[in-house]
Design a protein around this nucleic acid. Structure first.
Lengths: 221, 221
DNA sequence: GTTTGACCAGGTTTCGTATTTGGTCATACG
DNA sequence: CGTATGACCAAATACGAAACCTGGTCAAAC
């Protein structure tokens, strides 16, 4: 099998298999052999891509997370107004709820993720948070965010709110979190013009963030 | 031992002992005999007060929760402005953080509460939520709360926010949640006069709520 | 009438064994 | 010659039986 193209393709197939099984049986009960069989390859081949079981499943989660961000970026590209914090929140909230694995990550669903959960944040957070704060500062500079507190503090509050909504059962309507975020973090008026001005840079920020994670994914391939 | 006064006193001693051990060793590792010994009574005596182990520890939690509400009521009586949603939130947030057992309840600290956690909400929620919604409706009627959404929906969002802040580690500053709640759920201006007008009824609501729980506690005594 | 601790069934822990599985690598294969 | 594989092994996990503990009861003591 020639390297290059096909290699990445096979990696994706393995991740597909792992994701499927992870969701159906949970981390604890999914073996590497199950994954290999479902991917139609030998067990040893899996280790040509990832150095151990944990890394493989973390890659599954990372890919899922990257896909969610890429969806978000697409939405922002299609409509610059999505750059607005409240709108972006609604879309990302919906995205996460629609992806069972991400939802499990937020809801501390130990049943499916098991011992992966603790490792998740260590693996996923490096400069992700920084990028988000930058995005908030960008909004603030354009009167699209409250400025009576530093963006870094608002980020803390924002994450608390998002987390609170995500763990609710059943999760509240997307419109409700959008509304809450709008009131809690946005100024009274949000200028459409400013949003359009901000969009390119915001899109770039998230694109870059997603690209970094993609890189890390492919490095493992 | 004559009934009446002394009986309640003994119940409190048992709860003290149970609370102490619960905090130090966790639910799973705290036995009824431990509790009895620490309370200076025989094991059988515990069952004169509660019909089983689970009920005893749920009572510990219920008492803790009642105490927090009573603290809150005292704060409202001392200063009617505490009736304001943002202020009340700050105080209650601080109260909960200061009470490790309540904090464990919100943070899903399975290590100390173990199998009690699932039962907690079933036990604690009956008309508690209703009272809170009533309080919100009271605020709304006096222009102390957003009115563009029904109080019941705001209550859902509010609980998500509160929960999100409580599970944070480390928990954000009390000022931050107060600020967030103020923006998210209060109208632009909050009238001091209206607050004073609302205070007696609000205090009554919470007092009643606490009294109901106290009753249930004492019924078990 | 109240309190108690011995008592017992049901549950949990322990510990040794059988089984499974993560990860390696010599071999087969293209 | 480089890639893929599955037999292989140590380590982890699952299992089962026996020992131990504990929740809850109740006859006896007070």
């Amino acid at each position: 099998m020639p390297p290059a193209e096909d290699r990445a393709e096979r990696a994706e197939r393995i991740l597909d298999a792992a994701a499927e099984l992870l969701l159906r049986a949970g981390y604890r009960r999914t073996t590497i052999e199950d994954v290999a069989e479902r991917a139609g390859i030998g067990k040893g081949t899996v280790y040509l891509h990832w150095k151990n079981r944990e890394d493989l499943f973390l890659a599954v989660l990372l890919r899922e997370s990257v896909r969610a961000i890429e969806d978000l970026v697409r939405a922002m590209e299609a409509d610059p107004l999505v750059t607005r914090l409240a709108t972006l929140t609604r879309i990302q909230y919906t995205n996460v709820l629609a992806r069972p694995l991400l939802r499990a990550g937020h809801a501390d669903d130990a049943g499916t993720l098991g011992k992966l959960l603790p490792k998740l944040h260590d693996q996923l957070d490096p400069r992700h948070d920084e990028a988000f704060v930058e995005y908030l500062e960008l909004l603030a500079a354009h009167d699209l965010l409250r400025t009576d507190r530093p963006a870094r503090e608002l980020a803390v509050a924002y994450r608390a709110v998002l987390h609170g909504f995500l763990v609710g059962s059943p999760p509240p309507e997307p419109a409700l979190i959008a509304d809450t975020v709008a009131h809690a973090f946005e100024p009274l008026a949000v200028s459409t013009t400013q949003l359009r001005a901000v969009a390119p840079r915001a899109i770039a920020l998230f694109t870059e963030s997603a690209a970094l994670d993609r890189k890390r994914l492919e490095r493992a391939y």
